[in-house]
Design a protein around this nucleic acid. Structure first.
Ligand SMILES: [Mn+2]
Ligand SMILES: [Mn+2]
Ligand SMILES: [Zn+2]
Ligand SMILES: [Zn+2]
Lengths: 142, 142
DNA sequence: CAGTATCTTGATAATGATTATCATTACACT
DNA sequence: AGTGTAATGATAATCATTATCAAGATACTG
């Protein structure tokens, strides 16, 4: 999936008149390699090991770009810092979030998805995306 | 509903060994009177008209208390500042959020609610609350 | 290939909402 | 009324994110 992601990113850049850079390649590789919900800080620290010259702001800027071009999704949960997750190679899903340990379970229910679309339509509303988060206590914390 | 809310708030305070104050009465009244999604800043400005001596931090602190005791719900939407809405006298609902104009439509679908509980249960997860936000384009913006 | 326009970077400062600090005031209970 | 302690209000601190800007890199152009 890495190749497809790079393809998408490069197309987006040229389409917007932006330029590709060594840093962008490094940051995208690191983001795809992490393959989980990750904060900018965590990503920055992972990158720092091999590429200590890349700045925090540059990581920030490029994660925003990943979101813009559809490669990443932003997750703001409670007061935690914003997390990002790759969209390429991952089907859409929602989250069960344990309020005790913070564990995140990924789920999907096609019935709910369909009902959401119906609900939007019934309100003359054209949905573009949604966020469903169920907070509670996970198996391990009970 | 104002009386019930005050009842709940006062019980919570005494239960926690906290004290009631003139400011707390004023802030709770103003919050309940607003009766909509409101930011701390907006609430502060509303209060300032008649009670200019009440500080911003005090409004902040007490809105947090309202959330703790179940009188208010916190809504973090995108990059907007946190909004709060009263829970007393309002049934649970979810939100359709227009990405163009910011309009918020309140909705509820009991089928979705039930399926969410099933989904949680199927994952050995005990739900305590959830958040469903559907982002899209509202009727007026199409 | 060199020239050039403009984008990107990295360091750092600014921003802005939220939270902490702390001296002073006010509450609640005896 | 007296007393212990919580609450307040002004202000500072925090901290993630965003802006700034000089220096460097990139992608064309001829
Ligand atoms: Mn996920
Ligand atoms: Mn609402
Ligand atoms: Zn847990
Ligand atoms: Zn709209």
């Amino acid at each position: 999936m890495t190749n497809k992601a790079k393809e998408i990113f490069r197309s987006y850049l040229s389409e917007k008149g932006l330029r590709n850079t060594r840093q962008r390649e490094v940051i995208l590789d690191a983001f795809l390699a992490a393959d989980k919900h990750i904060t900018v800080e965590e990503l920055f620290n992972a990158i720092k090991k091999k590429n200590p010259e890349i700045g925090y702001a540059t990581v920030h800027r490029n994660v925003s770009l990943f979101c813009e071009c559809g490669l990443a999704d932003e997750m703001k949960i409670g007061t935690q810092k914003t997390k990002y997750e790759p969209k390429i190679g991952h089907k859409h899903h929602d989250h069960l979030i344990c309020v005790k340990c913070g564990r995140i379970i990924e789920v999907n229910d096609s019935k709910i998805e369909k009902l959401q679309d119906k609900l939007a339509e019934a309100n003359d509303f054209t949905p573009v995306k949604h966020r469903l988060e169920i907070y509670g206590i996970c198996k391990q914390c009970r």
